[in-house]
Design a protein around this nucleic acid. Structure first.
Lengths: 129, 129
DNA sequence: TATAGTGTAATAGGAAACTAATACACTAGA
DNA sequence: TCTAGTGTATTAGTTTCCTATTACACTATA
């Protein structure tokens, strides 16, 4: 997999897995691929995968069962909270970035709308989950 | 200044200065603070400032005059291009992030609108530059 | 009970970012 | 011409992230 060299790999792995959980590709209770398997498919060291998992386990999103595997929590409350937190983080990021450029609230929405009109043609209908 | 420990400091410095140029706090032709001064005010090493400047110089946004200082380019075309590039980069980032969560185009706009309604009260009118 | 599959831990080494310190090169002005 | 203010370069040392390797602990099952 390709990584952004400006951000720690372990952190990007965390993002990828969280995205999959929220997008539903990993449902509550699902077993994750084995750490050694993840390491191979991400072309990364096991320790790096482990570091990402460590944080997700500490946050309660992933449940680790020694000898069995890692699982997505069955607590849908936690998953929902994670989703809201991520959405909010992403929105805040954009809002702050554009505000620093002295772009007004209404312009921000206009810009995003225009961007989606431009780029979003082929993806206007893929949110049926 | 506070930095995000997930991103190299030199890169964040670059972002701050670009933001100031686009927001107009640094106009075309303006002289930047001396590198040693910047290092102090950012509580960072001179070399780190220099690394950020190096990239901006290479990109043509900053003009370096040995013995005199660093200046914002007077080529407003370059500044305008930079602005469009940054806006697009930020928008793409949000769009990709939310799409990975399987959020549809229209929902993205709804979410952003709601976010601004929530958070934007105190800043609804600060884009008069 | 042996073995394969799983998570976890620890050590050593390399690369990138950052700091610290020093020196050099150029410019402007007293 | 001297000096202060500026950008630039170099070297050495620290920290964080990442890799590689090896070992250990637990679980399920043949």
């Amino acid at each position: 997999m390709e990584f952004d060299d400006k951000v720690p790999i372990y952190y990007q792995i965390k993002t990828v897995i969280y995205d999959q959980i929220i997008a539903g590709q990993l449902a509550p209770g699902d077993k994750l691929p084995a750490v050694r398997q993840l390491a191979v498919s991400l072309t990364v060291n096991v320790n790096t995968v482990q570091r990402a998992l460590r944080e997700m386990i500490d946050e309660g999103v992933i449940i680790s069962r020694r000898g069995r595997g890692n699982f997505v929590t069955e607590d849908t409350e936690i998953v929902e909270q994670l989703k809201q937190e991520l959405i909010n983080r992403y929105l805040k990021q954009l809002y702050d970035q554009l505000h620093r450029l002295k772009i007004s609230d209404s312009e921000i929405i206009d810009e995003l709308t225009a961007y989606i009109e431009r780029q979003g043609d082929s993806n206007d209908n893929n949110a049926e989950n």
